[in-house]
Every structure is written in C-alpha cells, then in structure tokens.
Simulated scan of single mutants.
Amino acid sequence: MAPPSINQVLLVAGTHGNELSGLYLQKLIRDGVYQADRSTFQVKSTVANPLAVKKNTRFVDIDLNRAFSAADLTSDANEKRLAAEFVKQHAGNENQLIIDLHNTTSNMGATLILLSSDPYYTKMGAYIKQRMPEANILFEDRKSWQDQPYLCTTGQHGLMLEVGAQAHGSLKYETLELMKNLLTAVLDYIENTNLNHTVKLSDYEAYGYIEEVMFPLDIDGMRLATVHPTLCGRDFVAVEPGEPILATFLGYDMHWQGEETVYPHFINESAYCQSNIAMAMAEKRIVRVS
C-alpha cells in the first residue's frame, strides 16, 4: 500500500497547559527563528487548551489528552467541549498529520510516540533512529486507532513528541533543543516520503508499551512506597525479573514480577501523581523495515 501523501501538518501545543516546550517552539516558528514548512506541505499551529495555558496548569477539569475516545465526546467539562470542537474542526481534514507536542518530568530524552505499527510509522521510526540515534521510539499500539484516547489520533494520521526531563510550568534550553531536533527529523521524513525519495533504512530497536505500575496505597489513599532509588532518572534502562522497582516505607522492596526484561518510562512523572502511577513498562522489540 502506498504511503499517505501529507499536504498539511497540524502542530499542536498546550494540550497540557503547563508543558511549555511546544508553546515556545510555536513561538519560534511565528518569529521566523525555526522553519517548519517544507516544499510539499505547510505547517499550521494551534493551542489545544488555551485556558489551561493561561492558568499554567495541566488541565482545567479533566486531561484533554485522554478525552478523544470515540465514546462520550459530549460533556460540560472544559476539555470535553474542547475535544468535541477539535474533532469537528480538524478530524475530517484529509492528508493531514497531527503532531502533538509534550514534555515530561521523566528523564525520557527525545521520545517519538507512535500509535500505530503501520509501515508509514515503522519507517518513520527507522528514519528518526538514523538521524537521532539517541532518540527513543515508543509504540503505544495495543489499541486500535479508533479506540485511542489521544488528541493526535482524531484524524487519519498523527503522533506525539515527548521530551524530558523538564519540570512542568518551566522551560529548559536542552529539552527545547531536543524537541526542535526531533520535530525537524519528523518533518524531513514526511517531506522525503512525499517526494518518493529513497532513503536506505535499517532495522532498529524500539519499545512497545505493555502496562502501568501503580503505587500501593493504604486505607487513607496514601502511598505505601516510592519509586525505587535505583530507577529514578533511568527511563528506558532494562529491569530484569526480580529486580526492585518500588521501595516501601516499611523497609522492604517490591520487585518486578514479570518473566521478561522490561523498560520503565514515565518514571515518577509528576502529572501522574493523582492517578498513583509509578511508571509505565515497555518491552523491547526489533522493528524490521529492510
């Protein structure tokens, strides 16, 4: 099947209002400091949750980036209203690819999050790894495209960029540079594919999301453990079966009970505190494109 011919990229920032890297990358585009357009497509920008940006908070009522599943797009919540408006305005645009820009408090470096293992995206991952060997390619493809709750899956084509570590509500030079470099590589891939330019690509290592690890709680809803100190700041570093992942306040460790090696990411992400998510786990996979 022929790859899609993309004639517009929609660059979305402020899906989470206190993640500033994407907002400032949009500013660099407006100021002419960063060139996003290519010969075969134009780049348009939008801010997804302006009120959350104004308040410098992740969201107003609910997480906008979990509000796009096909069911229940009607609600009084600020973010449900925004989701319905976004779908109405952007979901039907053909030949458009949505890039949602995020930063995380976790030490994930430059991470390209792909919601499909369609050849267009697997080859994109190969191209990014070739251009940025330090980048992480993370597939969250266990759900169908239609069942994904994310903003970038409202149309036919989309992905997320995640950079870190960066405190929410703040801006760091290093993470902004990571986002610029990762976005440049993605835009160049789209351009080369549109032009049918042949680029030799190699098989590569990527990660596939499998599950989340929750903090244990007491009867008052308070945590009984923290992320184990040997894991903090070590996103995408291998954890073997039986190795510690949580340290309890009673002095004993909780260990990874799975039978396979896993790779934690979104470790101790501050935005997940309310949900008591300690980290997400991924498996390593070899993606074959040759």
Rank of each mutant, 00 (worst) to 15 (best):
E79H: 13
E79N: 12
K80C: 12
K80Q: 14
K80Y: 10
K80L: 10
R81T: 10
L82A: 06
L82H: 06
A83M: 04
A84Y: 07
V87I: 10
V87R: 04
V87Y: 01
V87G: 00
K88C: 05
Q89N: 13
E94M: 02
L97C: 09
I98H: 03
I99Y: 00
I99M: 03
L101H: 06
H102M: 02
S106A: 15
S106G: 13
N107D: 14
N107H: 13
M108E: 15
G109E: 02
G109C: 00
L112R: 01
S116P: 03
D118S: 11
D118N: 14
P119N: 00
Y120V: 03
Y121P: 13
Y121L: 07
Y121H: 10
K123Y: 10
A126W: 09
A126N: 02
Y127F: 15
I128E: 02
K129M: 05
K129N: 07
Q130M: 10
P133I: 09
E134R: 07
N136T: 11
I137P: 12
I137F: 03
L138A: 06
F139M: 07
F139V: 04
E140H: 08
D141G: 07
R142M: 13
K143N: 13
K143D: 13
K143L: 15
W145I: 05
Q146M: 13
D147P: 02
D147V: 07
Q148S: 15
P149G: 07
P149V: 07
P149C: 08
Y150E: 01
C152P: 01
C152R: 06
C152S: 06
C152D: 00
T153H: 06
T154A: 11
G155A: 04
G155Q: 01
G155W: 02
E162P: 11
V163A: 08
A165Y: 12
A165E: 12
A165Q: 11
Q166T: 11
A167M: 11
H168V: 00
H168A: 08
H168R: 02
H168C: 00
G169P: 08
S170T: 15
L171G: 13
Y173N: 14
T175C: 11
L176P: 12
L176T: 14
E177I: 14
L178E: 14
K180T: 06
N181S: 05
N181L: 01
L182G: 00
L183G: 00
A185K: 03
A185N: 04
V186D: 02
L187E: 04
L187T: 05
L187A: 09
D188R: 07
Y189M: 05
Y189T: 01
I190T: 13
N192G: 10
N192D: 14
T193Q: 15
N194W: 12
N194T: 14
L195C: 14
L195W: 04
N196P: 06
N196R: 11
H197Q: 14
V199Q: 12
K200A: 15
K200P: 09
D203M: 01
D203R: 04
Y204P: 03
E205S: 04
E205D: 08
E205G: 01
Y207D: 04
